[in-house]
């Protein structure tokens, strides 16, 4: 998912003594492989993860780790294991889905991979990885706000790559913090040409499609090319550490529209829609993979809020064979519309 393989690789390579294979970036071939062996109307992340699993098994991986939970994401691994075994691969799937991911279980699993594992060393590196995710998300937030207005092309992208490269080589929390401060300063010094009343758009929706740039056909890059400031809430830091807090806040702040907690990110999305409307954003983009049940339940409510506040909203539903051109056309039309509303 995006650049998050870097902290994951950092954590695993420091606590266990094993070769770690980074799966190749998702391409059209991955999704083709995945959808060939998937059931009929499963949601799209299943196809992506299955395709990635097959590709990394072909590179010689013997242990796969699946981490997740929430909606039906927690049940993926069992079916994927069965499908891969029927295809004839030999491997072990470590399954850390929600409800099963307690500390004892994780400890036992790691002990099985590497017998020399030391729990204090593990916790130390976990702390560093956690901070790394936090800093990455902060930098990403800044990039998203300003990348549309860069003067030198790709300057943000290149600096980000350089920073992540440095991040993967740190070995204590203090040097990580210093690096983060140094690079954040550098980011702020990059030349931008940002007008005061630029167009602002919020992006909400289902987590996988939001965070994996290939699966939404680089929607954020496309938006940035129209000189738009982008706000996105969903990131790994939110998913792992702030989830429960946000949902409680969401239930409190949007009582008028919702009473009970909904599955996965649906209730957070409703709250964020209200937040974006209150902050007078010019438009909201809701993206999800097709057949994502929690989002389907929340969409009519989101629609109602946007109507009440009179904020334009557009829905994208991505599948394995959505045409890229169609999405670009719809996005262009949406951009024209919000620009005309401004005038």
């Amino acid at each position: 998912m995006g650049n998050y393989y870097i902290p994951a690789k950092y954590l695993l390579s420091h606590i266990v003594d094993a070769d770690i294979i980074i799966p190749p970036f998702i391409t059209a071939k991955t999704i083709e492989l995945g959808s060939k062996y998937s059931p009929d109307f499963v949601c799209t992340p299943f196809k992506y993860t299955l395709g990635t699993m097959i590709e990394s098994l072909e590179q010689g991986a013997s242990i796969l780790i699946q981490f997740g939970g929430g909606c039906r994401y927690g049940y993926y691994s069992e079916l994927q294991e069965q499908i891969l075994k029927e295809l004839g691969y030999k491997f072990e799937l470590l399954n850390l889905v929600s409800g099963k991911a307690n500390i004892k279980r994780i400890y036992k699993m790691i002990k099985r991979i590497d017998k020399k594992f030391n729990i204090f060393k593990g916790l130390y590196h976990l702390y560093i990885a956690k901070n790394m995710v936090k800093y990455m998300d902060r930098v990403d937030d800044y990039i998203r706000k300003n990348v549309g207005f860069e003067v030198n092309k790709n300057s943000f992208d290149n600096l980000n790559k350089e920073m992540l490269d440095k991040f993967s080589k740190v070995n204590n929390p203090i040097s990580l913090y210093i690096l983060y401060k140094k690079y954040f300063h550098k980011f702020k010094k990059l030349k931008i040409n940002k007008p005061k009343n630029c167009l602002k758009v919020g992006v909400i929706g289902e987590l996988y499609t939001l965070m994996e740039p290939f699966s939404n056909y680089y929607l954020e890059k496309e938006l940035a090319s129209y000189n738009i400031e982008i706000k996105r809430f969903t990131n790994v830091n939110y998913l792992l550490f702030k989830n429960k807090k946000t949902i409680k806040k969401a239930l409190r702040k949007s009582k008028k529209y919702m009473k009970y907690k909904m599955c996965a990110d649906a209730s957070s999305n409703i709250y964020w829609t209200k937040y974006l409307c209150n902050k007078k954003y010019d438009g909201i983009i809701h993206i999800k993979s097709s057949f994502c049940t929690p989002e389907i339940g929340s969409m009519p409510i989101i629609d109602k809020i946007a109507n009440n506040y009179n904020v334009p909203i557009i829905y994208f539903s991505f599948d394995a064979n959505t045409s890229e051109v169609g999405i670009k056309t719809r996005l262009e039309a949406f951009y024209d519309m919000i620009e005309m509303r401004r005038q």
Partner: peptide, 29 residues
């Protein structure tokens, strides 16, 4: 509870009907 979940459609039934359709609803957890 978490170990006996319902389909996610069941979670949003009340809010969906409350927002989409104009009726009086009795509800409880």
């Amino acid at each position: 509870g978490i170990k006996d979940q319902m389909c996610s459609n069941f979670d949003c039934l009340y809010d969906l009907c409350n927002n989409l359709i104009d009726i009086k609803i009795l509800t409880f957890d």
